Computed example of a mutant assay.
Amino acid sequence: MFSHIFVGITDFDRALSFYDALFEILGVESRFCERDRPWAGWQSAGQQRPYFAISRPHNGQPHEPGNGQMVAFMANTREAVRQAHARALKNGGTCEGPPGLRPEYHAHYYGA
């Protein structure tokens, strides 16, 4: 059901230290850590999804309630992403980017 959960943070080093220590106890492994971006993610051992990620908000604005959080649902096809995006807009959602590739996440990430 879930692809990933993204939590906005204000102090990357503090958050990284917190989650690294917590996930070591829980047996959750590091997936990536890019200090220059800054963002980091973790996943259950041997699994690609779902994963948990932290970063400053992508839009560069300060983290605050409603900015910097993301819960992403899995879709089996790009067409399903397009349809889900259209349905979400029809039912009161807002668009933060049309369906398309998001190479800043990875080469084949397709989302909306």
Rank of each mutant, 00 (worst) to 15 (best):
P38I: 04
Q83C: 01
Y105T: 13
A86M: 10
D13T: 04
H58V: 08
G68M: 00
M1D: 09
V28S: 06
I25V: 14
L22Y: 06
E79V: 04
Y105I: 03
R82F: 12
E24L: 05
G68S: 07
A21K: 14
R14W: 02
G27F: 05
H85K: 12
S3A: 12
C33I: 05
M70C: 11
Q48I: 14
V71E: 00
Y110D: 09
Q47D: 15
D36T: 14
Y109E: 03
S30R: 15
W42F: 02
V28N: 06
H108T: 15
L22K: 11
L89W: 02
R14D: 00
T10S: 14
V71Q: 04
Y105E: 04
G111F: 07
H58Y: 07
R35H: 02
E104F: 08
N91T: 13
M1R: 05
G68T: 00
W39T: 05
R35E: 11
N76K: 13
G97Q: 07
R102G: 06
T94R: 15
V81K: 04
Q61C: 00
D36A: 03
Q69R: 07
T10M: 08
G97I: 08
C33A: 14
H106S: 15
S55P: 00
Y105P: 03
I25Q: 14
N67R: 10
I54F: 08
E24C: 08
S17N: 06
G46Q: 01
P98S: 12
A84S: 12
